[in-house]
């Protein structure tokens, strides 16, 4: 333990309202801690400069509700809650899958989806599925609520749309992907307890052999989790059922992918590997979709 706990404060107001008030009254002074699986790691290693924390582990943020066309996941829901939820398993199986890939069982019991997104690591495992499913976020503060598409959340490396007094209140998932084709894959340093070298999730609608809608999310290929907008554009309307054409489509898609991603060398992998594998996954995805569309 390289931090001195005697120098740190941690408040547990117990209700969402009280938490939001605190954040509002002294904006930027208090760092929220949910499951603590990011914060406590840095804290243990003596790498945190913050000294004042507020626990946002409150019941109001821990609910998953289904109504009409949406499933709403509270920002404080753990990945265990998410992967075990029947509605998520049914309508958003890739999110359940990603939840099962996050860390080990104990990390899933503690780690929250709000923490995963707010921490804003480009390697986080839940963002690709959220891109693929067209998720929206409800950000809350003592000032009120606002709703934004998830695409607008990440602004740069470890920079998000959250104001100093705001929390991720809810992750909203539209139930309109039940009939979509889907593809999800994590490439980690090993099969469990592994930070992703690349992770990817996609949904698509293919009609008469042509791509009608496609949404692709990818992690670890840019400073933020990425929705592959250029690749999606390149793929819109293309034909997947003709083998010769498919090869051209794949080639175009790889080009588009390369144009919008910029992987780096780091302690877990290399830029060259990530570039190559990202392209391979894209190809695998297209071949899978093509197979399903035939």
């Amino acid at each position: 333990m390289r931090s001195c706990s005697a120098e740190c404060e941690l408040l547990t107001p117990g209700s969402l309202e009280a938490v939001l008030c605190l954040l509002h009254d002294e904006p930027g002074l208090w760092t929220p801690i949910a499951g603590g699986t990011e914060i406590m790691v840095l804290y243990g290693a003596g790498k945190l400069t913050e000294r004042k924390f507020v626990s946002i582990a409150v019941p109001e943020l821990r609910e998953i509700t289904e109504d009409g066309g949406w499933i709403s996941v509270g920002g404080g829901c753990s990945f265990t809650q998410i992967r075990r939820h029947v509605g998520i398993q049914k309508h958003f199986p890739m999110l359940a899958q990603c939840a099962s890939w996050l860390g080990g069982i104990a990390n899933q019991n503690r780690g929250t989806i709000g923490g995963n997104l707010a921490n804003a690591s480009p390697a986080a495992d839940s963002p690709p599925a959220l891109f693929a499913y067209g998720a929206e976020l409800e950000l809350i503060s003592a000032r009120g609520k606002r709703r934004i598409p998830y695409e607008e959340f990440h602004l740069g490396y470890k920079k998000t749309a959250l104001a100093l007094d705001e929390l991720i209140g809810t992750v909203l998932l539209p139930k309109r992907f039940d009939d979509s084709l889907r593809y999800v894959r994590k490439v980690g340093t090993r099969n469990a307890q592994a930070i992703s070298k690349i992770c990817m999730a996609a949904t698509a609608t293919v009609k008469h052999g042509h791509v009608e809608e496609i949404r692709i999310g990818m992690g670890s290929v840019a400073p933020t989790p990425l929705r592959l907008a250029a690749t999606e554009r390149a793929l819109m309307g293309t034909e997947l059922t003709d083998a010769a054409i498919l090869n051209v489509v794949i080639w175009e898609a790889r080009r588009a992918l390369a144009s919008e991603t910029a992987p780096i060398d780091d302690i877990r992998s290399t830029a060259a590997y990530r570039t190559l594998v990202a392209g391979n996954l894209l190809e695998e995805m297209l071949r899978t979709f093509a197979g399903a569309a035939r």
Partner: peptide, 29 residues
Amino acid sequence: CGEGECGSCSVLINGELVNSCLVPIAQAA
């Protein structure tokens, strides 16, 4: 390890498996 990786600090909190190295005591109250 002190970083949630090895599980040798595992305990159950309300029946759920957690790494006690990543739980501040105030949250376990």
